[in-house]
Each structure stands twice: as structure tokens, then as C-alpha cells.
């Protein structure tokens, strides 16, 4: 079973600074790195005028959500062993074949939307990875006396509140 741990491009300090740039008074009290499992696919997608573009797609095993990602960068081997997976909730998990279908359907729809009816079709799978572990930071923080738990994307620094 092929497996890939993605390199953490946003370190703890950077994650903290992203949040503090939005809310200067925010104080981070703890930070943990968690790895979320995705099925990974690389497709060759035909565009107009005979051009072919290579596109990476990730499908979340736990929610079934597919999205297009940038090219993957693997973590250093010693870092990859320090895996801290998010546990399987077991109520919404999808299998690899379903993930493949979702990724392909996403790219076909998206290509049609872009090239419209001039698109000739052609989404070919170039490579797949059964498990791509994506790093996310889970930060505990305080702001104005209130406690928050916030997730920061370990690849691009996007953030989302887990709970307050």
C-alpha cells in the first residue's frame, strides 16, 4: 500500500503568527501536529488546443470531500515516522475506489466548466497514492479571556475554528 507523508510547510511559529496577524492579542498556549488521511491522485487532463495539464487531487477519507491541490512535497524520512494520525470516526469513511471516482468526477466536471463544450474529454490517471497524510496544526489559544481551538493547515496556513 503506497503511502506518503506531506512535508509540513507551515511550522508552529508561522502558524501562530498567521493567527496573530488576524488577532494581535491572541495567545497560543499549545500546538500539536495532526495528520489527516487522504487518497491522492495525479491526473493528466486534456485542455484545448491539444495541451495536457497535470493536476493533483486529494480526497478526504473521512468526509469524502475531493479537492484539487498543488504538487505534493514529501516529508523527510525521519520526520515521516513521527506520524500523528487523526482517528477514524467510522461513520462517514469512504474506500479508495470511491475516492478515485470522486476525484475523477471532480476533474471532469471542472474541466467541462472551464473549457465548456469545446472540451473533448480526457481525464487519465497518471498515478495514485493510497494514503497521503496531510499535516494540520491544532492550536489552543486565548483571546480576550476566551479559549479557542483552531486548526491551521500545515501546507498553506489557512485556518478554521474547531471549537470555542
Amino acid at each position: 500500500m503506497s503511502e506518503l507523508v506531506l512535508r509540513t510547510l507551515v511550522d508552529e511559529d508561522y502558524a501562530q503568527s498567521i493567527l496573530q496577524a488576524k488577532a494581535p492579542g491572541l495567545e497560543v498556549t499549545s500546538a500539536r501536529l495532526r495528520h489527516h488521511p487522504f487518497a491522492g491522485f495525479i491526473f493528466d487532463v486534456s485542455h484545448l488546443a491539444g495541451r495536457v495539464g497535470r493536476t493533483h487531487a486529494l480526497v478526504d477519507y473521512y468526509t469524502g470531500k475531493a479537492f484539487i491541490s498543488g504538487p505534493w512535497q514529501a516529508a523527510d524520512p525521519d520526520r515521516a515516522t513521527q506520524l500523528s494520525p487523526v482517528q477514524d470516526p467510522q461513520w462517514n469513511t469512504i474506500d479508495f475506489d470511491t475516492a478515485r471516482q470522486k476525484a475523477k468526477s471532480l476533474l471532469a466536471t471542472a474541466a467541462l466548466r472551464r473549457a465548456r463544450l469545446a472540451w473533448k474529454g480526457g481525464v487519465r490517471e497518471h498515478r495514485s497514492v493510497n494514503k497521503v497524510w496531510k499535516p494540520n496544526w491544532v492550536l489552543d489559544a486565548k483571546l480576550d479571556g476566551k479559549s479557542y481551538r483552531i486548526m491551521v493547515d500545515g501546507l498553506n496556513g489557512g485556518y478554521f475554528f474547531i471549537d470555542c
Binding site: D60, K65, F67, N136, V138, M151, F160, I162
Partner: peptide, 12 residues
């Protein structure tokens, strides 16, 4: 907020 993280945040 990045809504793409909503599902991952929920599971974590």
C-alpha cells in the same frame, strides 16, 4: 476562515 478545512477540523 478556510472552509476547505471544515471537515478536517470537525474530525480532528
Amino acid at each position: 476562515q478556510d472552509a476547505l478545512l471544515a471537515g478536517q477540523a470537525e474530525m480532528a
